[in-house]
Design a protein around this nucleic acid. Structure first.
Ligand SMILES: [Mn+2]
Ligand SMILES: [Mn+2]
Ligand SMILES: [Zn+2]
Ligand SMILES: [Zn+2]
Lengths: 132, 132
DNA sequence: CGCGCATGTGAGAACCATTGTCAACTGCGA
DNA sequence: TCGCAGTTGACAATGGTTCTCACATGCGCG
């Protein structure tokens, strides 16, 4: 049976104040900075539990680091800025159907999928452009 | 300027004999077993170089481990069996266009994407089914 | 209200894939 | 063949994540 603890509440609260994806380490540091001490192990357990419950969405960076963000419960994917990390939730029913169909055609069952789109957002392109 | 060395040749050769995805560690062990000694660091550098050249395709496991496999040069995605790791290369031009369009609509440029489909293959389902 | 205990916590160690170091080695153009 | 930039590999270091285990505590129950 799952208990409501100060620590779990604090970790969940962080994601209410934060946009985009953040690592367990980042959440831990932020809590520390606020004077809200929560052990690193506990933060890891908390974000994983939240992700299992579907309250957080998770992705892996190129380096294999796990990032989490609060997300809507409905199935969706992410459009992520390579430069600033800004993310946009996107949906594509047609893609969903395509994935299921392709898997079915090859005899695969219990189908799931991961899909992420990467690019450089307009703000980051403007920032990089020569002034003037 | 890139040199042809015994080690790089050996690593590349492994992927000619192997189906599916394999880790650097795995490749290293296999070379060792064949009496073909190649340093672990060298194997890591070799698979990364091959991936950069587009000769190997790479994905990350749930645990963040990098896996590589020889793949065709044309853009495609993977349908992977959760149980045995068997993979099928799949293509979906419509998905490509959708991803580009979605990114464009949100002002993102230099767009790329990752897409993987997971499921249980027919063979694995048969194996799991009660005998008789 | 407490009690009891299953759950949760956290400091620190362990894990383990990956990367860095650097002296020795070698492919290959000149 | 020479010279050296590119390459190697034993080993150390990194760093994110997980494990350990003694201690703390939420909460159902009496
Ligand atoms: Mn989807
Ligand atoms: Mn694609
Ligand atoms: Zn951006
Ligand atoms: Zn299978």
């Amino acid at each position: 049976m799952v208990r409501t603890t100060r620590q779990r509440t604090a970790v969940a609260a962080v994601f209410d104040q934060l946009e985009g994806f953040h690592s367990a380490q980042e959440v831990h540091a932020r809590l520390r900075a606020e004077g809200d001490t929560v052990g690193l192990s506990t933060v890891y357990r908390a974000v994983q539990a939240l992700a299992d419950d579907g309250e957080l969405d998770s992705i892996r960076t190129d380096t294999g680091e796990a990032l989490y963000r609060r997300c809507s419960t409905r199935h969706h994917h992410h459009l992520v800025c390579r430069s600033c990390g800004r993310t946009v939730e996107v949906e594509g029913p047609a893609v969903e159907r395509w994935a299921d169909r392709v898997a079915d055609e090859h005899g695969f069952a219990d189908v799931s999928h991961t899909l992420e789109i990467f690019g450089t957002c307009a703000a980051c392109r403007d920032a990089a452009a020569p002034a003037g």
